[in-house]
């Protein structure tokens, strides 16, 4: 019970900080939009709806991935200012509560960005999904969770290294590639309706299993990362 209360207060703190500055959301949203626009210059998706459907899933995830990496890099920096992180280490609350609070906050930020991005995406890419789009309400959160839980963890891990902005994607990408593959396959499958429903179900279940495994491992090992010296 205390664990949940601590998690909630960490979450509330992160949301309040974000509400005052709106740094992460504005930055991520604009960055993701730029990726979408740059890619549309390369492919001209409006002239070819079939091509647009095929590549849209991948582009959406690439945009979300790159944009969240920029936000995740900053998410621990505000804890480093004024030695807040050292205070967190001394605090009697569980380190995993701090981690879970931050993961939930980052998850909310990226989800908001996805909600804004999805309609923009559909307009710019002239997208007419052929499959059951309700499944996206399952695929997007699962894929985002995989991205955010590992991203928050590795951002904390690379906090003390040299050139940490470069290190985060180098560590994060190999670890989340299976989840990214599942998200892209499932999203493209829904948009084109070419993938069998059973396959989409398989990818969704695989994503769920991935999320459970890596959330557990991150929660168990976060204390070690926080107190490494």
């Amino acid at each position: 019970m205390t664990f949940l209360r601590h998690t909630a207060s960490h979450l509330a703190k992160d949301l309040r900080l974000e509400w005052r500055s709106r740094e992460a959301i504005n930055g991520v949203l604009f960055f993701a939009l730029l990726v979408v626009i740059v890619v549309s210059l390369a492919f001209d998706p409006t002239s070819n709806p079939t091509l647009a459907r095929e590549i849209a899933g991948g582009i959406l995830w690439i945009a979300i991935l790159f944009a969240s990496i920029t936000a995740l890099n900053g998410s621990w920096l505000r804890e480093q200012r004024n030695g807040v992180l050292d205070a967190q280490r001394l605090a009697p609350s569980a380190p995993s509560a701090l981690f879970l609070g931050k993961v939930l906050a980052n998850f909310l930020f990226v989800s908001v960005v996805e909600l804004v991005l999805a309609p923009v995406f559909a307009v710019f890419y002239n997208l007419h999904p052929l499959g059951d789009t309700r499944l996206l309400a399952l695929i997007l959160p699962l894929g985002t969770w995989a991205l955010v839980v590992n991203g928050t963890f590795f951002a904390a891990l690379s906090l003390r290294a040299r050139s940490r902005e470069l290190l985060l994607p180098l560590l994060l990408l190999p670890v989340i590639l299976p989840a990214l593959l599942g998200s892209i396959q499932a999203t493209a499958g829904v948009l084109t309706a070419e993938l069998d429903a059973g396959y989409i179900n398989f990818w969704i279940r695989a994503l769920l299993a991935y999320d459970i495994i890596f959330t557990t491992v991150s929660l168990l090992l976060f204390g070690v990362v926080l107190n490494a010296e």
């Binding site: 891990l157 690379s158 003390r160 050139s163 010296e229």
Partner: peptide, 24 residues
């Protein structure tokens, strides 16, 4: 990536921090 992490956080000294983070 594991070896890159070691390279990036290694200060040329024997450091328990590098060892712990790379173990994770």
């Amino acid at each position: 990536a594991y070896l890159i992490l070691r390279r990036f956080s290694d200060s040329g000294q024997v450091s328990m921090q590098t060892a712990t983070l790379s173990a994770v």
